[in-house]
Nucleic acid binder design. Structure first.
Lengths: 257, 257
DNA sequence: CATTCATTGCGTCTATATGACACAATGATA
DNA sequence: TATCATTGTGTCATATAGACGCAATGAATG
């Protein structure tokens, strides 16, 4: 367990215990009300939103650092996460920007301060069950909220680029990673699963063919319950047979969408 | 253009112009005599082989740094390369090892020297036309040679892990990246293309179905020439219709292998 | 120069998968 | 009780994948 740090401690002493020049950022996906969402932070003193991120302790594995950040923002301990790209353009961070932020916090930093060096960032995407997340802002932000994926037009620094890349990765890995399993609650309906696929693929799918195909894969199990309360016919609930699901994903699901 | 550096200059002054704690390594694939090969460096004073790698200048884009390393090892200027993973375990570099190497070179370094800090490395894979590469060792190596992919059992540090990951990435991206185009010479035969696929997939494919399918994609064009000189029937030569190839790859080639 | 032989090019057949669509059943609402 | 959007199941034509047959080719052989 890593100690809690104040913002002052990190700014002044972080250079001693964090790796220099390397950060990480997380695109945390959730699925709610048939929409794909991303967890974003509203930054202090600014009218901008940013991806949750953090630094890596000098003796800490990068994946562990991502896990730590995810735990701090969501309250969850076991999260599916996947590194997907390094963002390393030399001018990706706005140094003046960072200096201003620190000035506003009343912190003075020199020109060779560790925080205003060039940083590269390792992009992770994470898949969580929306319902069990308790969003928690970090020390640089005033709020932590879900945003519908298609309503996000601009983010801090290059975070929009990171987000777009994460979504593209999700699309490419749909047949190889347990994306449905990690984004949906344990019990879900076929229309929900379909909507998830449609959102990620950004494409309409035929309801009946989708269902036939999903059942054909053999890793979703229909329960005896239905989801009552909707305005129309109550759809059956399903859950994943995790063993079969993972086995199928190892080979990669056959066929395109 | 970056200046040429001596090993002494890099060890003693590198901390001033290279990013700290970040390196890159390249898995350079080539295809020759129906075998998939990787370009490796034989390290000085050691009985070990390593991937070509390097550091990143403080004002240099990571992809540019990889391009630079690739140019230095192969003599090529336009190389297809793709970042695929960051390797960041805290203990991945063997510090004693590095100290010993420098000792042998007669270079003394302190405990907080930039080169013996923890390093994370960005893995790139590159695809080149075997025939036009002129392998060139770097300052830490005595030779630079092609190795058949399946004959490599052990490499320096975690480089075998990096190699395995690159090959796995190649497999996953076979339907999305111009892998055939970049690994084969301009003119190639259908059996050659098939062998390339079989090597990457590590799986036998039916000759006749492979050919039918490839032709069906519509991005290979059969020439009027044949490859004479083989012991048997001379197969036709083909080349890629790059426009159609890239268009097909954008959607991803349909179907599995 | 005719024969041999592994390889290549082209084609066939069948089982299966895919895409488009019809229709009845359901369950809340009016 | 009728309405209506939605869900569950099935059908049909077509496309595709996998398995395999066979003739053509071109170097090697004697």
């Amino acid at each position: 367990m890593r100690p809690e740090r104040t913002i002052q401690d990190i700014v002044q002493e972080g250079g001693k215990y964090f790796m220099p020049s390397v950060s990480l950022d997380c695109v945390i996906f959730g699925f709610h009300e048939n929409e794909l969402k991303v967890l974003l932070l509203k930054m202090k003193n600014m009218d901008q939103w940013a991806l949750p991120g953090g630094f890596i302790y000098k003796d800490e594995d990068i994946e562990d650092a991502a896990t730590r950040v995810l735990r701090e923002r969501t309250g969850l301990h076991d999260i599916f996460l996947q590194q997907f790209k390094v963002f390393g353009l030399p001018n990706r961070s706005d140094k003046k920007h960072h200096l201003n932020i620190m000035k506003k916090d009343g912190i003075k930093v020199g020109k060779d301060h560790w925080l205003i060096q060039r940083f590269i960032t390792v992009g992770f995407y994470a898949l969580v069950d929306f319902a069990v997340v308790i969003p928690e802002p970090d020390m640089n932000s005033v709020s932590c909220e879900w945003h519908e994926i298609h309503s996000i037009s601009e983010l801090f620094m290059d975070h929009k680029d990171i987000l777009d890349n994460a979504l593209e990765t999700l699309r490419l890995q749909l047949n190889h990673q347990p994306i449905g399993y990690n984004l949906l609650p344990q019990k879900f309906t076929m229309p929900e699963l379909q909507k998830l696929y449609e959102t990620i693929l950004d494409k309409k799918l035929d309801r009946r063919n989708f269902q036939r195909r999903m059942n054909g894969f053999g890793f979703v199990k229909r329960l005896k319950e239905t989801r009552k309360g909707g305005a129309h016919k109550a759809p059956f609930l399903y859950n994943f047979d995790l063993r079969k699901y993972k086995k199928a994903l190892q080979e990669g699901l056959q066929g395109g969408w």
